[in-house]
């Protein structure tokens, strides 16, 4: 099915991301949906590099690079300045990785959304500190190898559920999205753009370098994360109204895990345990969405 999306791009063809970078694909889609009246705040993350060094930029919109933990606060300030100047047309977007969102930037993000600042916060999630060389974050999934969870010390904690943490702030809109489902992603960004207040979009963005996968299966692996219910697509309005956007096809998590070098140490028993953890999370989500 062809994608019904305009052919204008707000990203130049050149950037310095790795081959198959899910974060670059995510940026291209999101900017297409946002359009040129967008100011983007980028705290330290892979995109601090991908966007290019002085005096070049891979993006055709104004970009404010900022310190790691400041995504929520800097965007609040940009929004306040635009408001005082009477500019209500421009959309302010923070574009942060999982480290800048789940970990070091969580306080500023929580503060900003508690104040219901009028901006869109996008977290492109590649499930570890990829820019510094694949170190564990609180977004790294259970079972994963990283350079700080090597050998038998592979990560034994669950991935933090960031969407639920944001939903608990009762923000107007929170959603998950995936680079493998561009129509769903496009619709969600357009929907978020039309809403006032704090909006949060959590995009699953695969990382061939860090996940130890061939670059050509970057999108496939992101699709499988949704199909296995590891990363369900859903949206939550006003912190209460849940809508699940994709119904699972019954794929097993081990099919997703088997393709990635970061999980190659896991035993069948480990994978069975992960399967039951995923099923438990899915049931919880169904319950919230009013399903069985």
């Amino acid at each position: 099915m062809p994608l019904e999306v305009h052919d204008r791009d707000y990203m130049f063809a050149g950037h310095v991301g790795c081959p198959g970078c899910g974060a670059a694909i995510a940026m291209r889609f999101v900017l297409k949906a946002l359009g040129e009246k967008t100011v983007m705040v980028i705290p330290a993350c892979c995109w601090s590099i991908i966007a290019g060094a002085y005096p070049q930029s891979a993006l055709k919109i104004p970009v404010l690079h900022t310190a790691f933990e400041t995504g929520g606060a800097v965007a609040s300030g940009v929004r306040a300045a635009l408001d005082i100047k009477g500019d209500t047309e421009t959309t302010v977007v923070t574009w942060a990785g999982d480290g800048g969102t789940f970990d070091i930037g969580f306080q500023a993000l929580s503060g900003a959304v508690e104040r219901n600042e009028d901006f869109i916060y996008v977290c492109y999630d590649n499930e570890a500190y990829m820019n510094t060389g694949i170190q564990r974050s609180s977004s790294t999934p259970y079972g994963a190898w990283t350079t700080t969870t090597p050998g038998r010390d592979w990560k034994k904690m669950r991935k933090k559920n960031i969407v639920e943490a944001l939903v608990a702030h009762r923000i107007p809109y929170a959603a998950t999205a995936s680079i493998a489902f561009p129509e769903d992603l496009f619709r969600k960004v357009e929907k978020a753009k039309a809403i006032k207040g704090s909006r949060f979009i959590h995009i699953f963005a695969s990382c061939p370098t860090g996940w130890r996968i061939p670059s050509e299966i970057s999108v496939k692996i992101a699709r499988m994360a949704v199909q296995t219910n590891i990363f369900p697509l859903y949206e939550v309005e006003d912190g209460v109204r849940y809508t699940i956007n994709f119904s699972p096809k019954g794929y097993l998590v081990k099919e997703y895990f088997r393709l990635q070098g970061r999980f190659k140490h896991l035993t069948e028993k480990d994978l069975d345990q992960i399967q039951s953890m995923v099923e438990e999370d899915w049931k919880l989500l169904l319950h919230k969405a009013g399903g069985s």
Binding site: L64, T70, S76, V78, A80, A81, G111, A112
Partner: peptide, 21 residues
């Protein structure tokens, strides 16, 4: 902006000042 820390106070002003106010 009644921010949640001094760090965020300065961060917010960095954003606002960069937007020209």
């Amino acid at each position: 902006l009644r921010v949640e820390s001094e760090h965020s106070a300065m961060a917010a002003l960095i954003g606002a000042s960069s937007a020209g106010v």
